[in-house]
Design a protein around this nucleic acid. Sequence first.
RNA 1: CGGGAAGUAGCGCAGCUUGGCAGCGCGCAGCGUUCGGGACGCUGAGGCCGCGGGUUCAAAUCCCGCCUUCCCGACCA
Length: 566
Amino acid sequence: MRMSNLVLKTLREAPSDAEAISHQLLLRAGYIRRLASGVYSFLPLGYRVLRKVNQIVEEEFERAGAQQVLLPALQPVEIWEATGRLQTMAEVLMKVESKGGDFVLGPTHEEAVIQSISSELGTYKELPATVYQIQTKFRDETRPRFGLLRTKEFIMADGYSFDEDQDGMRTSYQKMYDAYVRIFERCGIEFFPVEADAGAIGGEVNHEFMAPSAIGEDHFASCESCGYAANVETARSHERTIEHGDLSLAEMRVHVTPDAPGVEAAVKAISDQGVELRPDAMLKCIASISSGGQIVLMLVPGDREARLPAGLTLMTDLDFERFPFLRKGYIGPMNMSEHNVRIVADYSVSERQWWATGANVTGSHVSGAVLGRDFFVDQWDSVSVVRDGDPCPRCSHELSLVRSVEVGHTFQLGLTYSSKIPSASFVGADGATHPFWMGCYGIGMTRLPAVIVEYFADAAGIRWPKEIAPYKIGIVSIGASRSETVRSESERLYQELSGKGMEVLYDDRDLGPGVKFADAELIGTPFVLVVGQRGLDSGRLEIRDRMRGTTTEVSLNDVVNYLDSV
RNA sequence: CGGGAAGUAGCGCAGCUUGGCAGCGCGCAGCGUUCGGGACGCUGAGGCCGCGGGUUCAAAUCCCGCCUUCCCGACCA
């Protein structure tokens, strides 16, 4: 491609509303343009990058045995009602009214894929099967962010596997998991598969593929000693030996603390009464209910966040009305056995002798509550969100939190969806009807280039890995308007390299060398071939390796072969 | 949804306090000089000053309302 023809204008300055490096560079180098908040167009360079990423995914998914399909982005609301997600995902769903009824712009495709292909998989003889697509998804994000990182409209590669039993599902899952590993390896970025929370999508075993990045919106806990890695939403810390408090400490005291629910307000109210208190000495009591109806009170130090284990849900205002002995904002763990409340405490609660907490009376707190005297714990567990330095649950080495972007997510859905949709079933060898064992697999295709740019960018601009770059080679001609030799040699090399099937971006514009070098570095082709009079006179041309930052001189006759081999 | 900031030429910004010709840099077009690191001269095009209302002889500027965008948080396959 000749740059004089390319639809592209590089910008010397990024628009002021671009904050992230990747956002700025992709705008400045002419890969993308914003159409609305969280809505981007891909210009020719950007679209080429997208196609490169697509190609990698297609190759690896096909290698894993998945077959490509294209499911509709427009989906009838009825299929969303069937799984109940019209309500549970209402926040992100974008709706469209049409003459034939109402539609949802698909934020994901579990419902659609089941409706579309389950009839093709009517018997166990047709299983297992995995399909995938590369499709635009729509999510009404309340806050789009960081350019391509979080958008309202984005492209995802999503796969779905169908098996007759759990073992089959696990096999299919493993194949896709392996494909994921190969895909991210080919993208060149650093990534970690971590244990994750299933979130709104449901299911049991699942992994997030996390790429450490400054623009990450997630954190995962990582142990460098044993390799444990888990999203903070699920990460646990190591169990600890429990010692009861010092029973000889002064007796518990009641403080009248009107209008002081919550740790912060309570700490202030109690401190105002002359008791020295910091948030970490405040016992946070979180009331929840198990699926079986058991009330569970979780205890966590006041400076920590509670992590709700699976199977428990936070008590709602309605629940609080049903159990008036629980005074929201003033709950304490004392005397809870009378009410048949189960007390689960985080391990970190055993690390302190003396606690302040709610008095179970609206507008009152206590200080000086001691474990083993004033309150008792039924079960010790890791129920707080882990922090830097917490002990690893496997080896108790220190965990560290890594800021990262979720670039992919794989789920073993099991029967989560197939049990809700009658057609999601097949006839087994036993002649009976069974629901599919499903898996689903998603990669954020428009997010990936942003992460790659973020990962490799330097002060001069983008540095693309070879497999992702829109063009492998940039040709910068210097002084072509002055020197016919430079012009014709540049032209010859462009033709010859292109003729060999290499992707070349030829800067044939009549501009000074400074501008051309700057643009070549901003755009980020892995190699830049410099064609100037100086080089031609010496018979050796400069080839710059953008990723390594090195320059090699290659004799004129070897240039084509050299570039073909790198 | 809560907190903060900002909307003036394609991009970056000044002008607003104290109302009085809509400006600067980059980019863009033409001509010429330059040409191995964003070079220079001359000429030129380009504006609903976010939108609506109000005050005033007069509003980019003052007042009221709205919209949009970005940042932090909440939320989130």
